[in-house]
């Protein structure tokens, strides 16, 4: 066992955990905005897949990773808008319409890929950026400060999101609409308007999450996300609708995944038991939630369409 706990190995595991966490983190953050305003979007994975494909395709055609990110964001924005029309204006059942969006994204991204690209062609990846001075700190530097720029941006979005939700008028409106839509409406807050905004933010972040995944991997393939959007939704509950909690959840999930991979590489986990070890990230995420006392509850208007005067 001593092999595992060498610093070099742990440094690699942490760095790997951060990379695995980022797409989950971005998508979960977006979902948080929607849920705080009372809208559950189960279609995150579908939006991620279409964001991933458009990001991939844009980079393939332009060789510019930032245009790829933009493409993912735009497609995500459009799908977020569509989700808002379905959930807010048409007041559809949110859980179920999300499954529809997921299936649509799963099929459509694959169809576009087959028709526009054919076989997987590698694309440019995000450039790595070593943060000056910090990246030179032994171990710490390698773990945290030798990543690509998007990864830093993703983590920077955590305090930004916390600030927006808790300290701005817009954030106050989001919370009001998610908790007391009737009261908010009486006070002149447009419930539908706020929910449109949060769904668009959520869709955009999911689209970006997908694009980040595709451009980080430098490739696209059928079902590239492999269910990451659903894990992101689970992490919103893990993080109790707080950006910092969600970040911790994403890092925990990524860390256990990375650790299991490392233990397999080092053959500390026998190959016969490999599948059992692969359960660990899911089980530990549940257990963590059992053992950390939960003192939070869901926004009370979550999944409830709003009708004035009801």
């Amino acid at each position: 066992m001593s092999e595992v706990f060498t610093t070099a190995v742990m440094v690699a595991v942490v760095a790997s955990a951060i990379r695995l966490a980022v797409p989950l983190l971005l998508a979960a953050l977006g979902e948080t905005f929607g849920q705080r305003s009372g809208v559950l979007n189960l279609g995150v994975d579908g939006i991620m897949l279409l964001g991933a494909f458009s990001g991939y395709y844009a980079v393939l055609k332009t060789d510019n990773v930032w245009l790829g990110l933009l493409a993912g964001a735009i497609v995500g924005l459009v799908l977020g808008l569509a989700s808002a029309v379905i959930a807010v204006t048409l007041k559809a059942e949110q859980g179920i319409s999300g499954i529809g969006v997921y299936l649509f994204g799963l099929g459509m991204s694959d169809l576009l890929f087959q028709k526009l690209v054919g076989t997987p062609i590698p694309i440019d990846q995000f450039p790595g950026v070593d943060i000056p001075i910090l990246s030179d700190i032994p171990y710490i530097g390698e773990m945290f400060f030798q990543h690509s720029l998007v990864i830093y941006l993703a983590f920077l979005s955590i305090p930004v999101a916390t600030f927006v939700i808790n300290r701005t008028t817009f954030g106050m409106k989001i919370r009001a609409v998610g908790e007391y839509p009737d009261a908010a409406d009486t006070l002149g807050v447009s419930v539908a308007g706020v929910r449109y905004a949060t769904e668009i933010i959520g869709g955009t972040l999911a689209g970006i999450a997908g694009a980040v995944l595709a451009i980080t991997l430098g490739i696209f393939q059928q079902n590239l996300t492999n269910g990451a959007g659903f894990i992101a939704i689970a992490l919103v509950y893990f993080g109790a609708w707080r950006p910092t909690g969600i970040m911790l959840g994403a890092l925990l999930f990524g860390f256990v995944n990375a650790l299991v991979l490392e233990l397999k590489t080092l053959e500390i986990i026998p190959r016969d038991l490999s599948n059992l070890a692969s359960m660990a990230p899911a089980i530990i995420t549940i257990l963590a939630l059992v053992f950390v006392a939960r003192r939070f509850r869901a926004p009370s208007a979550l999944t409830k369409p709003f009708t004035r005067g009801k």
Partner: peptide
């Protein structure tokens, strides 16, 4: 046609039916 089309079509049907439920 690619099977992927059928998956996408299923998704559209779900979205339309649920959205029209109102």
């Amino acid at each position: 046609v690619p099977s992927a089309l059928i998956v996408a079509l299923n998704g559209l049907v779900v979205v339309f039916v649920v959205a029209a439920d109102r």
